Amino acid sequence: MLLVERQTPKGLLVSVCDDGLLGETFEGVDRDVSLTVTEDFYGEGAESVDAESALESLARASVANLVGSDAVGVAIEAGYVEEGNVLELEGTRHAQFMRM
């Protein structure tokens, strides 16, 4: 997985995507939703991490954006994301969470 941490005025923003998804665009079933896994957001300054390292970052995150079965699966298993709140876009999973 690729992980990027950005400190913002509102707290830590964590972006995690599965390997191989950079540059891909995924459409919703009715094409009403589209997600592009951009180099700027998910790749620039990214570090290749395992599930344990991703969880350490998610534990500190104020906001997280997750794309891919591995990234979203790790967040679900740890209780950061509920399965019912995950979007399916052309077979790719996407989720976000915000800690308030």
Rank of each mutant, 00 (worst) to 15 (best):
R60H: 00
E82M: 00
G68S: 11
V49T: 10
S48H: 15
E83R: 12
S48L: 13
N85L: 01
E52F: 10
N65W: 05
L58I: 02
E47D: 10
E47H: 09
I76T: 13
I76H: 08
D50E: 06
Y80A: 00
A71C: 12
S69I: 08
A71M: 04
A46R: 09
N85A: 03
G73W: 08
V74Y: 15
V81T: 05
V81G: 04
A61V: 07
S53I: 05
G68T: 07
A54F: 07
V67C: 12
A64K: 06
L87T: 11
V63G: 08
G45E: 05
I76P: 07
G73P: 11
N65Q: 09
E56G: 01
A59V: 09
V74P: 02
G73V: 06
S62E: 07
A46V: 07
L58E: 00
V63A: 14
N85G: 13
N65C: 03
Y80S: 00
A75I: 04
A64Q: 05
E77L: 03
E47N: 13
L55D: 03
V81K: 04
A75S: 05
D50R: 09
V63T: 15
N65R: 08
A64N: 11
E56Q: 08
E82T: 04
G84I: 01
A51C: 02
V49I: 15
S69C: 01
G45I: 01
G45W: 12
A51I: 00
S48W: 13
L58C: 03
A71P: 08
N85R: 11
N65L: 03
E77N: 11
V49G: 13
A51W: 01
L55N: 11
E77V: 01
I76K: 10
